[in-house]
């Protein structure tokens, strides 16, 4: 139990995927322009990351390891993620059209979101149990979402600012992310696994 809580705390605040680990920077830069889209993307990422970790953990533990095929993890995992995203898209469209309207446009973006790939790889590499893996994925995706939402708030304000022309857009966003990364360093070493 203590370990699970530690995982949550660490991967949201201490070892944030965006600010300290550089996973998912592309969508972080891409969809943090507006609060609504940031929240939509966050929900999609939380959903897919958790589900993908569940699926890959099962495949890895019960298919790849028994057959000594762990070197196939990259190919398998990316396939699983890609298919999963498609699957979610289809199911969502059928079951909840309103949710699909909200999340749908973000789903294709997730396939190439390296945060998803990173989370499934790290779950395996850190030898987490199934429950730990899922909690880890949840925490990591929540950390990603937090970064995205904070950034969206800041960028909405920056829309109204007189930022030097050369720095407009991604440059100032990166610098902002850098300062955020600095700020979150305050939590450094607070908990270890």
């Amino acid at each position: 139990m203590e370990k699970l809580l530690s995982i949550i705390f660490i991967y949201i605040l201490v070892d944030n995927f965006v600010f300290q680990r550089f996973f998912g920077i592309c969508p972080f830069l891409g969809v943090s322009r507006k609060m609504e889209t940031a929240i939509g993307m966050s929900m999609a990422v939380v959903f897919v990351m958790t589900l993908a970790t569940l699926a890959t953990w099962l495949i890895y533990t019960f298919v790849l390891v028994p057959f000594n095929l762990s070197y196939l993890q990259i190919v398998t995992f990316i396939l699983v993620i890609a298919s999963l995203v498609q699957l979610v898209e289809i199911i969502l469209r059928k079951i909840s059209p309103t949710l699909y309207q909200g999340l749908g446009i973000f789903l294709p973006l997730i396939t190439t979101n390296c945060a998803v790939m990173a989370v499934v790889l790290l779950a395996v590499r850190q030898e987490f149990s199934l429950l730990e893996s899922v909690i880890f994925a949840l925490a990591a995706s929540l950390g990603f979402s937090m970064a995205l939402v904070i950034m969206a708030g800041i960028r909405e304000r920056q829309e109204l600012a007189k930022i030097p022309a050369a720095l407009k857009g991604s440059a100032v966003t990166l610098i902002t992310a850098g300062i955020l990364s600095l700020a979150f360093l305050g939590f450094k070493g607070m908990l270890t696994l």
């Binding site: 000594n68 396939l79 298919s83």
Partner: peptide, 25 residues
């Protein structure tokens, strides 16, 4: 033997997903 497993597993996974996605697409 190992290579066979590899091809079989990957092929199977690929086939399954491929088939699935083809239908979906």
């Amino acid at each position: 033997m190992l290579i066979l497993y590899a091809i079989a597993t990957l092929g199977l996974i690929g086939l399954l997903f491929g088939l699935f996605l083809a239908i979906v697409a």
